[in-house]
């Protein structure tokens, strides 16, 4: 087994770290401060990689595992930075019965990442979502603000190509 850490290099700045330490210090005497600290840390960095969680664990004197346990419990926290393009596949009922599960799996295979992850070049993130209100176009996915509907797996290469910049 190897540690499941983010493959994208951490690019945190000294400025971000100062901010994070200020946030932790401001919660110094609060009980149950871990949640607000994690939320603000994610605002600062956009995600919560091991480097950030280790600072939080050390400064708050909480075991790293406890921090990680909370981060992986709540879906609001992300272990990976968002890519330049976020591909969001609708797995709502209508899309799902029209085969969006296959779209998701195919994208996962093509990009080499699981749901919630980002490609090592920082380009694509893959997530699933529930119903974007375009059931008539099922199955649907979005790439940032662009919506694609009535898809089959054969359409995916063409879509990815559009974002090759």
């Amino acid at each position: 087994m190897a540690a499941k850490t983010c493959s994208i290099p951490f690019k945190g700045t000294a400025e971000q770290e100062t901010k994070l330490r200020e946030v932790i210090a401001s919660h110094k005497d609060d009980k149950g401060a871990l949640m607000p600290v994690l939320q603000q840390a994610q605002e600062i960095y956009g995600y919560l990689p091991i480097e950030v969680q280790t600072i939080i664990a050390t400064e708050m004197d909480i075991p790293l595992e406890k921090v990680y346990g909370v981060v992986t419990f709540y879906s609001q926290f992300s272990l990976n930075p968002k890519g330049k393009y976020t591909i969001s596949v609708c797995l709502g009922t209508a899309c799902y019965v029209k085969g969006s599960g296959d779209l998701f799996d195919e994208l996962s295979a093509k990009l080499g990442i699981s749901g919630g992850e980002t490609t090592p070049d920082g380009k694509f993130s893959l997530v699933d979502c529930r119903c974007i209100g375009a059931c008539g176009l099922a199955p649907v996915l979005t790439v940032n603000d662009d919506v694609y509907g009535r898809l089959t797996v054969d359409d995916l290469d063409g879509i990815l190509e559009k974002y090759s910049d």
Binding site: A2, K4, I50, P63, Y68, G69, F73
Partner: peptide, 27 residues
């Protein structure tokens, strides 16, 4: 965590995926 004050194992993920492991699923 309580008796030994160490806490290197804990519950990760949630629901059906919940599992007892170390931070970042490390060894």
């Amino acid at each position: 965590s309580k008796v030994q004050g160490i806490g290197v194992i804990g519950a990760n993920e949630r629901g059906f995926k919940t599992n007892i492991a170390c931070a970042f699923e490390d060894d």
